[in-house]
């Protein structure tokens, strides 16, 4: 049995999605064209994950096993639609950036995966911590990936377009286009995610080796 702290921190390294838990790749690849897309999608997913974990864990002794997946999907979809409506009202620009990937949170395997593997078997407190941990891990990963791709691809960092919080890190002359545009194009998404995963593998390999020695 994990301690409560471990329940939270496991999402930040040991099981960090989408690296360790290779799930939820579609949003990871699609919305990380900018830093804003990354953290926006991460937080939206965290909200849905925490809420659905809470409700599924609370109802885990009531939900009939045979229709559990259908019930999970209804609960998850409800929170996705709530997120969709609230984002449209309060963060319209972010909602436009993420587009079709907001309703698609409903089929993000991370959420259904946590519902099935964790929340339906554990108490409310643990499920909440699990949701926050995995959610923050996902947000962190997406934000780093987004920042990396945007910086290398455009030389800018979009924090929050609605509030005009953009930073130009690498200034360009008037009318000049950034050369490493590859990073913000679809192929760059795959390669960049692959490179980050490679780096994580190398780090864990090294730490495993030093532990063994």
């Amino acid at each position: 049995m994990k301690t409560l702290t471990q329940e939270f921190t496991k999402g930040l390294w040991e099981q960090i999605p989408p690296f360790r838990l290779v799930l939820g790749l579609c949003p990871t690849l699609a919305v990380t064209k900018s830093l804003e897309g990354g953290w926006g999608m991460g937080l939206a997913t965290t909200f849905v994950l925490v809420c659905s974990n809470l409700f599924i864990s609370a109802l885990r002794n009531v939900i009939p096993p045979k229709v559990r997946i259908a019930t999970f999907i209804v609960i998850i979809a409800t929170f996705v639609v709530i997120t969709e409506l609230v984002m449209k009202a309060y963060t319209p620009m972010l909602s436009e950036t993420l587009g079709v990937f907001i309703p698609l949170i409903v089929v993000n395997c991370i959420i259904l995966g946590r519902a099935e593997a964790f929340a339906s078997k554990n108490g409310i407190g643990r499920s909440l911590l699990d949701g926050f941990g995995i959610g923050f891990g996902f947000t962190l990963a997406l934000a780093v990936l987004g920042a990396l791709r945007e910086l290398l691809g455009t030389g800018k960092l979009t924090m929050f377009a609605q509030a005009n919080l953009d930073l130009t890190i690498i200034p360009l002359g008037e009318g000049r286009e950034f050369l490493f545009k590859f990073m913000v194009d679809p192929p760059g998404a795959f390669v960049c995610l692959g490179a980050m995963l490679l780096l994580m593998n190398l780090i864990s390999e090294r730490s495993a080796r030093s532990k063994a020695a």
Partner: peptide
């Protein structure tokens, strides 16, 4: 070993 599995998959998908 660090390249096996998902990593090589992702880089191939990129190409």
């Amino acid at each position: 070993r660090a390249l096996q599995g998902t990593v090589s998959g992702l880089i191939t998908a990129g190409l």
